[in-house]
Design a binder for these strands. Structure first.
Length: 587
RNA sequence: GGGCUCGUAGUGAAGUGGUUAUCACGCCUCCCUGUCACGGAGGAGAUCGCCGGUUCAAGUCCGGUCGGGCCCGCCA
């Protein structure tokens, strides 16, 4: 009977068998110690020359050999206890030892503090996964899913799996296409989300649906975004007409995950609802990190007639001047400020003006352009005191918000204001239904066309379409978007009107979204829902900043799985069956 | 598609234009009966990612290229 490392302490005096990998071997010539590792920890084996066969086997052992050892579990002499091991007060005096499998020298080191590059870790992921931290992550993730499912079941949501072979939808991310053999020239698409299926389930009479759904998107990845496939907690509720009902339904799950599951401190259980426009004005972002303040202060009125040309001109051109007060910012060196200036420029700023408050003085390249009154007002409105620095953005409003929003996050990072033990949640609500494309000046959908415009047909008739609000909402966790949802537009008349506002006629809508629109014509109940990015939320709850750390087999930044060598070329015969021809392999 | 950045034994790192490229872990041989990242003695192992250039001389400087990472675009 196999005994795990976590169990050995309770088995003193028994004959036990332990199995696992050789974590380390300490050969004293006449006495050999082996640390054998399983998924619960490490146990020390002692092999003495008296057990001749076992001793001979032990002499051959190398790192990561797979072994089975049987012997008596004995307490260690108090002087020999290893407090660093859970099993450190006992050891196995081995009688028989068998080598279940051997291992070549490893291409990456599993133990020790020098960790291999991510490139190699992914190529040899099966070795990387043996590391205790990765082992723990895998099991934590299973527990995470279990807790989510338990919550959803408790609330009478029904899990339904939806097709992986689906059809291409013209909106959104790039699709992964799968060629049809039976229907040459036709393709399935892997779903970017089960969006249409879940809405059709609502039409199909299901009151509450959920699914831990695999989603596929062919878009470039980021540290917080996987390439290819990822998982969403997808849910939808029938006869729900407000986003608030969805939010209050699902909120307790997230609070539970933050506190019970992750053991983190929730900044507030009273989760704020912040309008999109307000979030942009106060935080310069639609996914603000609320663990710290540093809000954007609008100084346009105060600096309208400023002697500093950059400020005055920005306002005269219809723009705005805003500022953030960085506590302790006066300690920043010139080169550090240069670094932040580069970031500001990358976000579209012309430069980065600032005031530094030191020893009762204002130090700044621009101070000489500002009047005493202006300096006093700036200090008063931003709350800047000795030791602080105030940074300005002066440009068109969207640019200023974007620049200062980014700087707010960067300064928080620099001054370590992002407490890893605290989780701050908020809902961003009231997204604009339509947006004007900054480049083309053309009106387009802000988020997705299937959400309900607040005010319905009446609102859609408005002259300024950009004022129309969608009943749509995101949940934000520590500056990451973890959920997006909306009240769906289940009314064919309104759906046609939504597209008509952009110049698309009914025939266009019918051709693109046929199944949805015809389903809605047969008594679709009002419905609303949302979807959480499970990989990303888990990453945050685990305190990680790289999403690949919490996924067993992620692809790299180029969409390549170095371990499995995917994607890969296929046989000509396979291509023939699919009526496909590769035109240019180098392109 | 663009910007930044990294690429040196199996792994992780050091390396000021100038001798035979340094260290740790790992690997091989030998010694060692209480170690626990055991210790000791010795050894093997590097086209400094690749191509080109500057130079008397390039791991080091320059250009290109390939690969990794981060970011922008993109991700309804």
């Amino acid at each position: 009977m196999r005994v795990l490392s976590s169990e050995v302490s309770a088995r003193v005096g028994e004959i036990v068998t332990v199995k696992g990998w050789v974590d380390s071997r300490r050969d004293h010539g006449g006495l050999i110690f082996i640390d054998v590792r399983d998924h619960t920890g490490v146990t020390q084996l002692v092999i003495q020359p008296e057990a001749a066969e076992a001793f001979a086997a032990a002499e051959q052992l190398r790192d990561e050999f797979v072994i089975s050892a049987t012997g008596s579990l004995t307490p260690r002499d108090p002087k020999l206890v290893n407090p660093n091991l859970l099993s450190g007060s006992v050891e196995v005096k081995v009688n028989t030892l068998s080598i279940l499998n051997r291992s070549e020298p490893l291409p990456i080191q599993i133990s020790g503090d020098a960790m291999a590059s991510e490139e190699l870790r992914l190529k040899y992921r099966y070795l990387d996964l043996r590391r205790p931290k990765m082992q723990q992550t895998l099991r934590r993730r299973a527990a995470y899913y279990q807790q989510i499912r338990a919550f959803m079941e408790r609330l009478d949501f029904t899990e339904v799996t939806t097709p992986i072979l689906a059809s291409s939808s013209p909106e959104g991310a790039r699709d992964f296409l799968v060629p049809s053999r039976v229907h040459p020239g036709s393709f399935y698409a892997l779903p970017q989300a089960p969006q249409q299926f879940k809405q059709l389930l609502m039409v199909g009479g299901l009151p509450r649906y959920y699914q831990i759904a695999t989603c596929f998107r062919d878009e470039d990845p980021r540290a917080d975004r996987l390439y290819g496939d990822f998982y969403q907690l997808d849910l939808e509720m029938a006869f729900v007409e407000t986003g608030e009902e969805v939010r209050t339904t699902i909120e307790p799950l997230i609070i539970e995950l933050v506190t019970d599951f992750a053991g983190k401190q929730l900044l507030s259980t009273d989760i704020p609802r912040i309008a999109y426009s307000e979030a942009m004005e106060r935080y310069g972002s639609d996914k603000p990190d609320l663990r710290f303040g540093m809000e954007l202060i609008d100084l346009s009125d105060e600096l309208r007639d400023s002697g500093f040309g950059v400020f005055g001109k920005a306002i005269a051109d219809g723009g705005t001047v805003k500022a953030i007060c960085v506590k302790g910012g006066a300690s920043l060196s010139r080169s550090q400020i240069d670094g932040f200036t580069d970031i500001a420029k990358a976000e579209g700023a012309g430069g980065l003006a600032y005031l530094s408050y030191e020893a009762g003085q204002v130090k700044s390249p621009i101070a000489k352009f500002l009047s005493e009154v202006e300096l006093t007002i700036i200090a008063a409105k931003t709350g800047a005191v000795d030791g602080d620095a105030v940074f300005f953005g002066a440009d068109q409003r969207p640019v200023v918000n974007k620049v200062l929003g980014r700087l707010r996050s960067e300064f928080a990072e620099h001054f370590q204001l992002k407490d890893p033990d605290v989780i701050a949640l908020c809902w961003i609500v009231d997204f604009p239904f339509y947006e004007t494309d900054a480049k083309t000046g053309k009106l387009d959908f802000g988020h997705n066309p299937f959400s309900m415009p607040l005010g319905g047909l009446e609102a859609l008739a408005s002259d300024d379409k950009t004022t129309i609000i969608a009943d749509q909402y995101d949940m934000v966790m520590n500056g990451y978007e973890i959920c997006s949802g909306g009240v769906r537009n289940h009314n064919p008349e309104v759906l046609y009107a939504v597209f008509a506002a952009l110049g698309y006629d009914a025939a266009y809508v019918d051709s693109r979204f046929g199944a949805m629109i015809s389903a809605f014509k047969y008594g679709a109940p009002p419905h609303a829902g949302c979807a959480f990015g499970l990989d990303r939320m888990f990453m945050i709850l685990q305190g990680e900043t790289n999403i690949r750390e919490v996924v067993a087999f992620p692809k790299n930044g180029s969409g390549i799985d170095a371990m499995m060598s995917s994607p890969s070329e296929v046989d000509d015969q396979q291509l023939d069956e699919l009526s496909l021809k590769i035109v240019d392999k180098s392109a």
